[in-house]
Structure formats: C-alpha cells, structure tokens
C-alpha cells in the first residue's frame, strides 16, 4: 500500500507564508481535491509531496520515503513514483510529443522496445497518437495538457498530482481533461488535484481538503 501522509507539517517560506500544522492522509486509489482561495497554500502542499520544499516541522511521508530521512539522491526515485500535471503544462518544448512522453521512460533506463510500446499506448489513451511528431508549441492548450497527463502516467505512478490542470483551459476542454483524471482514478491511481474551481468540486463530489491561510479547515 502506498499512501501519502502529512504529520503535523509546518512549512514556511522565508517571508513567513506557507503551511501550518497540516495533518492528513491520502490512501491508495483515492481522489482528493485540494481547494481554497489563491494564496491558501495548495501549490505549497504539492511541493512538499514532490519534495522541492521541506517542512520546518513535522514530516511528509510519500510511499516508502520520508521527508526527514530521504537522501538527495533518492528524490528522483521518489518523483518517478508520482505523476505531475501543471496548470501551464510544462512540456519539454525542445522536443516533439513522442519524445516528451518517452523522456520519463528513458530516464528510468527502459529498453527502447518497451519505451516505444508504452509511449504509443499512452498516446492512444489520451487520443493524440496522430500528433506524436508535432512540437508542443503546435498543439492547443487542451492537447498539451493531455500529453502532460500521458507523460505523468507513463511510469505508472501510484498518485497523480495536478495543480490547477484546467486553469488555462475553457470549460469544455476542462471537462474532457477531468474525465481523463476520472478514468485514471478508476483504474486505481490516486489523484490529488489542487483547484479553486467550486463548480468542479461540486460536480464530482470527491473528498475535499479545504485550505485557508495555510491551514486545513475541512
């Protein structure tokens, strides 16, 4: 069982902003929304899970890793067990769509044969096989986000972290993206999605962590 657990986590930036005494679990296969107004600390929570940021007090457990004991060299290994999707897509803009997905498989040292099979499978799942030779800049926002999701899923993570994945997309495209996350979750992958879109949270009625001023209030 791979879970995420925040134990009394306080994490502050140098200016005093951040997260205060956060306690919560995300169990395997769960879908959790992280909601709250701008500046509440949603992205900060995701950074703590990705370990680009470390708590000042308390600890963050991600799968087998613990923020207090993890070695710098292990951080890439941790991240390979996570998938991440961002509001601004963050595709590697110097290579085509196929290479973007293949990248995360290459860095784990898979064989070319497997990489090809897996990349084509991921492309098919987000319905963009025909765009595999395009550069990211030649895709629409929605298409870029689909590729980002395909990349996040390529290494078969136990959880996908999504930071406002629909923030830059129109409502119609957004609902398509959300359907993708729903399918991913139904196959057993946990999803943690940060959003301040109330509509979304209401339509899906998943568990929601409500943040305000760096505290979890519900």
């Amino acid at each position: 069982m791979k879970n995420i657990r925040f134990n009394n986590v306080t994490a502050k930036y140098s200016n005093g902003e951040g997260i205060e005494i956060a306690n919560f679990d995300i169990k395997q296969g769960e879908f959790v929304f992280l909601s709250g107004p701008s500046g509440a600390g949603k992205t900060t929570i995701l950074k703590l899970i990705l370990m680009t940021l470390f708590p000042n007090r308390g600890s963050v457990e991600v799968g087998n890793f613990n923020s207090q004991t993890i070695h710098t060299k292990e951080i890439p290994l941790l991240r390979r067990q996570l998938g991440c999707v961002f509001q601004d897509f963050r595709l590697l803009d110097d290579r085509n769509v196929y290479e973007n997905i293949a990248f995360v498989l290459r860095i784990t040292g898979h064989r070319e044969k497997y990489i090809k099979r897996r990349t084509f499978k991921m492309l098919a799942e987000v319905g963009l096989s025909h765009k595999r030779n395009q550069m990211p800049s030649q895709l629409s926002g929605g298409e870029q986000q689909r590729i980002a999701i395909a990349r996040a899923m390529a290494n078969d993570p136990f959880i996908v972290l999504a930071d406002e994945p629909t923030g830059n997309l129109d409502p119609e495209t957004s609902s398509g993206i959300l359907d993708l996350f729903k399918v991913i979750n139904e196959r057993g992958t946990a999803v943690l999605m940060a959003t301040h879109n109330r509509n979304l949270i209401d339509t899906f009625s998943y568990r929601t962590l409500q943040l305000q001023h760096g505290r979890i209030i519900g």
Binding site: R80, R90, A152
Partner: peptide, 18 residues
Amino acid sequence: AKARLIETMELVGAKRSL
C-alpha cells in the same frame, strides 16, 4: 534559457547526472 526545461526534467524524476 533552459532553466525551465531543466526544472521540469527534475520534477518528472530525472537525476542530475542525467
């Protein structure tokens, strides 16, 4: 020019040596 690219690579689990 590649700062963002490098950061993204790190976020998706690329080792520094890589």
